[in-house]
């Protein structure tokens, strides 16, 4: 176990570690409020958009979660469920969600911290937060599309919409 350098793997590059299209989306159960939990596999049969983001309380209007909140009807038209995930706790999510009037769940990847982000390969050890990473999961629980944005750049929703449209066009793909 002393020699951990595996050829073909880049330990320094977190981005390349994000689970790619074709991988089975690891199941998880996380709190969305102090007394409610959300389980990924409960959404089997419909597409799920998993949006990892670094932290609640981003100071700009139309930050990533605020933006997705506005675009939510478009996601819903395509049959998808949207889940936001960060390492913030459920109480923090509740306050943030109420302040921004969010209409979709925020999941707390809080204890053990970042465990789900690690499963998806998008935990940032240096910051103790997650990447800004998007996963579109198909109705069978397989990742159809994933994308890691530079952490300072809000990726918008165009990639998600395109991926969801593909799923709607050809549900048996993959």
């Amino acid at each position: 176990m002393n020699n951990e350098t595996t050829p073909g793997q880049q330990p320094g590059s977190l981005k390349s570690a994000a689970l790619p299209a074709g991988a089975v989306a690891p199941d998880f159960s996380l709190r969305s409020t102090p007394d409610q939990a959300v389980k990924l596999s409960d959404f089997r049969g419909q597409p799920v958009v998993l949006a990892f983001y670094p932290a609640d309380w981003s100071p700009v209007c139309g930050d990533q979660m605020g933006l997705y909140n506005e675009i939510l009807p478009e996601f819903q038209k395509l049959g998808a469920e949207l889940l936001g995930i960060s390492v913030d706790g459920a109480w923090c999510h509740t306050a943030f969600s109420r302040d921004r009037k969010l209409h979709f769940p925020l999941l707390a990847d809080f204890e053990p911290k970042g465990a789900v982000a690690r499963l998806y390969g998008v935990y940032r050890e240096t910051d103790g937060t997650t990447e800004r990473a998007l996963f579109v999961i198909n109705e069978l629980g397989v990742i159809h599309w994933s994308y890691v944005s530079p952490v300072g750049v809000n990726p918008g929703a165009d990639g998600i919409l395109s991926a969801l449209e593909e799923l709607n066009k050809d549900p048996n793909e993959i």
Partner: peptide
Amino acid sequence: ARGGVNGT
């Protein structure tokens, strides 16, 4: 939304 707007 389609074109990549990521805030205003």
